[in-house]
């Protein structure tokens, strides 16, 4: 029978799951935006995520910047890295390759190249070990809840930021003039151009937003854990694939639901189940959902190619 300590333990696991799900949400939103609007499955997204954590580490370890400026600079840096890939590679592939399937393939490989370069920069500069910003930049406070359960202020910040970012992105895509253009470009770039939309600007700004969201996730995770390494980027990337498939590519709401669902499932398996099967959850979900309901389990796409 679950007594008070067990209930506290469960609450703690739930809090951990929600914090993990919030980081996943921020990560997956950018990936979904890029795939849904521009047909880019950006495999450099995980590397950009780690790169932002690394930037914050570099900017704060000598005490040069405090938390908020470092966060902003790192997000801009992550956005700029993603835009660099768009400008140097994706844009050319999109305009020069007639065959859509071949363009998708080439963008995939180009993004792998980008991931390799970014990973190399980070691991060279950090000596290929774990790194993290100093604890002084964010004074962590823990609030005790029932039993052994507790939540820290950075964890609360992560959840609040993730919810705000998801709501903000959702509203931006649905209501704003720019968001309307993003959806139009996703459906038909040529006609969008004929209506006066600057398609390459929309592509660049979309990729910037996608990269900055990955950067936001990366910085918050780095500050929360204070120990990040290059390999973590790939774990998040693979989990995010499952989020996109379960939530449906191009759906903000679907991505949010799927991110928390997967976070809770993985946390539960690690806490109470066969720990080694943890990674299998994401892969099994990808396979099952694609077999049963390829358009995703939840909301219908808000921005998606025809």
């Amino acid at each position: 029978m679950p007594g008070a300590p067990a209930a506290g333990e469960m609450l703690q696991q739930l809090i951990n799951a929600i914090v993990f799900g919030s980081v996943l949400t921020l990560f997956a939103l950018g990936l979904s935006l890029a795939w849904g609007t521009l047909d880019v499955l950006n495999l450099a997204h995980g590397a950009v995520f780690i790169f932002a954590g690394y930037l914050t580490y570099e900017l704060t370890r000598q005490g040069a910047l405090s938390f908020v400026p470092a966060l902003i600079v790192s997000m801009v840096g992550a956005g700029a890295a993603t835009v660099a890939l768009e400008v140097l590679a994706f844009r050319f592939i999109r305009t020069r390759f007639a065959n859509k399937r071949q363009a998708e393939l080439s963008m995939l490989v180009a993004s792998i190249g980008g991931a390799i370069i970014i990973d190399q920069v980070v691991s060279n500069e950090t000596g290929a070990t774990t790194f993290g910003p100093p604890s002084s930049i964010f004074k962590v406070r823990e609030y005790h809840l029932t039993g052994s359960a507790g939540i820290t202020n950075i964890q609360i910040l992560i959840v609040v930021v993730a919810v705000l970012a998801a709501v903000g992105l959702d509203q931006w895509v649905r209501r704003s003039r720019q968001g309307r253009a993003v959806r139009a470009v996703a459906y038909d770039p040529v006609t969008s151009g004929l209506l006066g939309v600057n398609v390459s600007f929309v592509a660049i700004s979309t990729m910037f937003v996608a990269g900055a969201l990955a950067g936001l996730a990366g910085v918050l995770l780095a500050v929360n854990l204070r120990a990040e390494e290059v390999a973590v980027g790939q774990d998040y990337l693979l989990t995010a694939f499952a989020i996109l498939i379960v939530g449906g590519v191009g759906s903000v709401r679907g991505a949010v639901l799927a991110a928390y669902l997967i976070a809770i499932a993985e946390t539960a398996v690690v806490a109470y189940g066969p720990t080694q099967w943890r990674d299998g959850i994401a892969f099994l979900l990808i396979l099952l959902v694609l077999l049963v309901r390829p358009q995703g389990l939840f909301a219908k796409a808000q921005f998606q190619r025809a």
């Binding site: 003039r177 309307r180 253009a181 959806r183 139009a184 006609t191 209506l195 006066g196 025809a306």
Partner: peptide
């Protein structure tokens, strides 16, 4: 100068009003 393309090419998933507003994209 605006082209009305062959086959109308409306942005099917957007509402009628959104399509019209898209036409005024350059008007802030």
């Amino acid at each position: 100068m605006v082209l009305v393309p062959e086959g109308r090419r409306v942005i099917a998933p957007l509402s009628v009003e959104e399509n019209l507003l898209l036409g005024a994209y350059r008007q802030r």
